[in-house]
Design a protein around this nucleic acid. Structure first.
Length: 462
RNA sequence: GGCCCCGUCGUCUAGCGGUCAGGAUCCAUGGUUUUCAUCCAUGUUACAGGAGUUCAAUUCUCCUCGGGGUCACCA
């Protein structure tokens, strides 16, 4: 049974980097028919907020990454942590340390002055005297003072740390009794039955400490996969300062979960030359052992490409539903199919598609000056009038081809090139020289609106 | 600074001793399109450097350089 988890601390929104490790964890659990758990690490009361926890859950909902079972909140598990801390105390594997913060600071300063590494000196490790008057105690764990600690990492291979280089008797419970991060992570992962920990490699140097906790408590050590960081364009760890790192901002920008997830899965992971992955394919093909060792730089060029790919290939009905979030209601539009077929190949995001659609649907209120100078020549009014006359005379005008035939007729009768009617008509219909096929536009807006736009343009530009 | 990790086109990556170093994106050019976009075709650009090992190194080893992470009574 594979059990993975995502364990954010609710200090803000869900960010891109977190989402990627969550996605990896999710995929690996699903691939193995296992369980993907969510744990909110809200032990730091000063920095955490309930809104942040809700925001994270909402983001997962938008993305369709469902966790299994109930969400675990660390803030509700004080009793459990207290129990294990007491156990370690009773077994002599942890002890009370009465050193004050001032004393600690002083120790560190001396060590720095002597160019030693800063660490707790273990002065209360075997203390059995009377505690100093009024001193508050923290609980420290007895960590090994020398020897190798090996992290068996599925991404980077075996990583050997020397206890004397990195460890000291670190604090597992603060003076107020609250447990610290490295302790609760190990306890929770063990109690929740987590078998594979997939997380950012900024946690790599914490892992030996957690291993100390696992071993002291007699828990089974899970498999670790430390995935490389995502860097910003400066090559530094991606942080909130780097602009769009809030996952929900991607919804606002018009990206779909499918494109965002596809983009993220390919950051640090690949499967041969394949670029497009459906959720089913990701689940089928993902394996954390294939995760890259090196960090990747966050660059959204490919996200745009993926996004347009997914929009182009999405059924119009589904597209119309998604577009409502961006203020475009098309559900009852009778020309929805033509409309979206002719516009969805032009948009990189849903938001862009919504805007392009609104532009086509709205009667132009102004005309691009350069476009008029280039495309609305002296004979424009005559040609457009001839075309308008044909529209007026026509009985049935529904399909793009119906309008196309009328344009061809004008071209033939007046013995002009297609551009002669195309350019002014484009300006009349859209106010500029670019845009979707004119026959499509006319079929979408209909006979009356087409005539109106032609009349308006002649009035304004002739 | 100590410890740890990493180093293939600008970017995301394939490669797991012998390849014209492949794909994607971006960019450029051409074609298609009345226009723009799409689409199609073509093209430019990479093994950080130096020693080894080997008949042969992008691939294995070491060193250098470069980048990153982490060193709390934060998580």
């Amino acid at each position: 049974m594979v059990v993975t988890r995502f364990a954010p601390s609710p200090t803000g929104y869900l960010h891109i980097g977190g989402l990627r490790t969550a996605l990896f964890s999710y995929l690996w659990a699903k691939k193995n028919g296992g369980t993907f758990l969510l744990r909110i690490e809200d032990t730091d009361k000063a920095r955490n907020s309930e809104e942040a926890a809700i925001a994270i859950v909402n983001a997962f909902e938008w993305l369709g990454l469902a966790h299994d079972g109930e969400i675990t909140y660390q803030s509700k598990r004080d009793d459990i942590y207290a129990k294990y801390i007491k156990q370690l105390l009773d077994e002599g594997k942890a002890y009370k340390c009465y050193m004050s913060k001032d004393e600690l600071t002083e120790l560190r300063e001396t060590q720095m002055a002597n160019k030693q590494r800063t660490m707790y000196d273990g002065r209360y490790r075997d203390f059995d005297g009377t505690p100093p008057e009024g001193a508050e105690a923290v609980i420290r764990i007895k960590a090994p003072t020398s020897g190798p600690i090996v992290v068996k990492d599925g991404v980077k291979g075996d990583i050997t740390f020397q206890a004397e280089d990195i460890l000291d008797d670190f604090v597992i419970a603060r003076a107020d009794g609250s447990p610290t991060y490295n302790f609760v992570v190990a306890v929770d992962d063990a109690l929740m039955g987590v078998t594979e920990v997939i997380r950012g490699d900024d946690h790599l140097s914490n892992t030996p400490k957690q291993i100390v906790v696992y071993e002291a408590l007699g828990f089974t050590i899970p498999a670790f996969y430390h995935v490389p960081m995502i860097h910003n364009s400066e090559g530094k760890k991606l942080s909130k300062r780097d602009g769009a790192t809030d996952v929900m901002a991607y919804k606002d920008m018009g990206y779909t979960p499918a494109s965002l997830l596809n983009f993220l899965v390919r950051l640090g992971w690949s499967h041969g030359d394949q670029e497009i992955f459906s959720m089913d394919e990701m689940i089928e093909l993902f394996n954390p052992k294939d995760i890259n060792k090196s960090a990747s730089i966050y660059n959204t060029e490919k996200l745009d490409w993926l996004s347009s790919h997914y929009i182009k290939n999405m059924p119009n009905k589904q597209l119309a539903e998604l577009l409502e979030f961006y203020g475009l209601v098309l559900t009852s539009h009778d020309k929805r199919e033509i409309l979206l077929d002719s516009l969805k190949e032009r948009a990189k995001t849903l938001k862009e598609l919504a805007e392009l659609t609104k532009e086509v649907l709205a009667t132009p209120v102004s005309y691009d000056e350069k476009a008029v100078a280039k495309g609305f020549k002296a004979d424009a009014a005559e040609i457009l009038n001839a075309f308008a006359a044909k529209i007026n005379a026509a009985e049935e005008l529904h399909l793009p081809s119906d309008y196309h035939h009328l344009m061809e007729a004008v071209v033939q009768e007046m013995e002009i090139g297609f551009g002669k009617i195309g350019q002014p008509l484009r300006i009349a219909l859209l106010g500029k020289l670019s845009g979707p096929g004119l026959d499509n536009v006319m079929a979408i807006i209909g006979k009356e609106e087409t005539l109106l736009r032609i009349a308006n343009a002649i009035k304004a530009n002739a």
